[in-house]
Amino acid sequence: MAMASQMITANRLSDGMVVYFTAGKGWSETFAQGAVWNDKESAETALNESKESVKARIVVEPYLFDVAVTDAGPKPTSARERIRADHNPSVAPDQGSWTGRIPD
């Protein structure tokens, strides 16, 4: 039986990239490395801790979102967070016009 829990996400200040707050109070681009909180109190405490990174100009607007804890690990429960966790639109590049950023 999946249990409703929460994780913390934000966008990185420099490039807007989606990041997740980790157990080590850092940020990771990888969803699986984000920490999971199973009760409201610890989630709120962590959210306050994550806001230090706003002052440090690392991220913008951190917030809590719901995940379902499954045998395969936490999964976002909303379509919005599933898409954010992929770091890309759900539109496959070969179907759209995305050709990728061309470096200098």
């Binding site: 379509a79 919005r80 898409i83 639109p89 759900s90 539109v91 179907q95 759209g96």
Partner: peptide, 17 residues
Amino acid sequence: GLDYCNLANARSIPVAQ
């Protein structure tokens, strides 16, 4: 739509495709 937009509730592009 929800592929890019912070305000969106659902994806528009895959439906259009």
